[in-house]
Amino acid sequence: MDKEFWSSFSHDPRDEQFRSMRASDQDRATVEQALTEAYADGRLDREELDERTEQVTRSRTLGELVPVVADLVPSTSASTGRGLAYATSGEIHEKAVEKYRSDRREAVFGFLFATLVTTVIWFLTTGPGHFPWPAFVALGTGINVAKTVSRKQDIVRSHERRLEKKRAKELGQPWTPNDKASE
């Protein structure tokens, strides 16, 4: 996660030359996503999540975002420069599971965001007593969440195959799916 996490910023906030640069909304969203994942994993309690989220909201520069996640995301990768070429099967599996968690998080946040926005619009424009059309939005985005959760193994296997193919390419070898991944 650490390499993908830091590359998600407009500029690397760990780099001294960018620490005083203004943070974008996307930079803040990246940190908030890491905080939410840490909360979901049980690495933060609700109070810590709220406190850190407030810090992120108040942050103006990239440098102010680094301390918020310093104890949650390594600032350097143990496999710096290695890429996937030397990744073990276990590391590839872990990366695939990490990607699945990201997919699941995106599906849940998409559901929550779309449902909340449409419900607020419905409430402000028509209100109770009228047909609750946001239920259709909730149903549609809820189906995506259910599909993502129910297909976990298939999605993880798909990510593993993609990473194995990428590893073979880095090694300059032809890619052939192994029997376990293609079952």
Score class of each variant (00 low, 15 high):
73 V>K: 03
128 P>C: 05
130 H>N: 13
64 E>M: 05
108 V>G: 09
88 T>W: 07
51 E>W: 11
144 N>R: 14
86 Y>I: 04
83 G>Y: 06
38 A>P: 14
107 A>F: 10
54 E>K: 10
69 V>S: 03
55 Q>C: 07
11 H>V: 01
151 R>Y: 03
52 R>G: 01
28 R>Q: 01
167 R>Q: 06
10 S>Q: 15
32 E>R: 15
106 E>W: 07
71 D>G: 02
41 D>T: 03
183 E>M: 12
157 R>C: 00
173 Q>I: 00
25 D>S: 13
87 A>I: 03
57 T>R: 15
11 H>A: 03
132 P>L: 03
113 F>K: 15
150 S>Q: 04
89 S>L: 06
94 E>W: 11
127 G>L: 01
99 K>W: 05
89 S>Y: 11
173 Q>K: 15
48 E>F: 01
160 E>F: 00
33 Q>Y: 10
38 A>H: 12
86 Y>G: 13
59 S>E: 00
140 G>Y: 08
171 L>A: 08
160 E>R: 11
137 V>A: 08
147 K>R: 14
113 F>A: 10
181 A>W: 14
11 H>G: 02
30 T>P: 04
153 Q>K: 12
86 Y>H: 14
80 T>H: 12
139 L>A: 15
111 F>L: 10
63 G>A: 02
165 K>S: 00
46 R>E: 05
54 E>I: 01
152 K>D: 02
98 E>I: 00
35 L>H: 12
